[in-house]
């Protein structure tokens, strides 16, 4: 976990990602589609990003059936928040199926806007409190790949994704 305070939130965030061995790419709004295309391995499913004028590459099925979700190689979903200290992203569980599409595939590609990166867990909860209380929503604070040590050594990729790739859209 990063403790250096003179770094910007995005620098702290990527420092933390490096510590937990999660890959990331920063990209501009104009390049988002090509960035994602390069990261996606088919079959892919995903949820459209809540950013005006941005659509997911055509290869990403945004209206998948349960079988497509369960057998996808890549899932692409937005995150609403990132926590720099921990390298965490906050994933919504919404009617669009974000939770399902971030959970079942081998690789999860998470898209976050730079302006949505906060420094600390306390800052994240300042946002999560009203959200959960007022909208009664669901949120997953996800940090790195799914993992277990139950089989005698650390293994990544258990019930959830084995690989996580974070795409940071520069403001």
């Amino acid at each position: 976990m990063s403790q250096t305070t003179n770094e910007s939130p995005v620098e702290q965030f990527t420092t933390s990602l490096a510590e937990i061995e999660v890959d990331w790419t920063t990209t501009g709004l104009d390049d988002i589609e090509s960035t994602l295309t390069a990261l996606i391995e088919s079959p892919a499913v995903g949820v459209e990003l809540p950013i005006d004028g941005v659509t997911l590459p055509e290869r990403v099925e945004t209206n998948p059936d349960p079988t497509a979700i369960r057998t996808a190689t890549t899932g692409v979903t937005p995150a609403t928040l990132a926590i720099a200290d921990y390298g965490s992203v906050v994933l919504e569980s919404d009617p669009n199926g974000s939770e399902l599409m971030s959970l079942f595939s081998g690789t999860h590609v998470v898209v976050i806007e730079e302006s949505d990166i906060v420094g600390s867990m306390a800052e994240a909860f300042e946002a999560l409190g009203p959200h959960l209380r007022e909208e009664r929503g669901d949120a997953i604070v996800a940090t790195g790949a799914s993992a277990t040590s139950d089989m005698g050594a650390l293994v990544r990729g258990v019930h959830g994704p084995k690989h996580v790739h974070i795409v940071i859209i520069e403001s």
């Binding site: 939770e99 604070v141 996800a142 959830g160």
Partner: peptide, 15 residues
């Protein structure tokens, strides 16, 4: 530092 998933669910969930 943190486990992979902290699920904050306000069930029934919206998925």
């Amino acid at each position: 530092d943190i486990t992979s998933y902290i699920s904050l669910l306000t069930p029934p969930i919206d998925a």
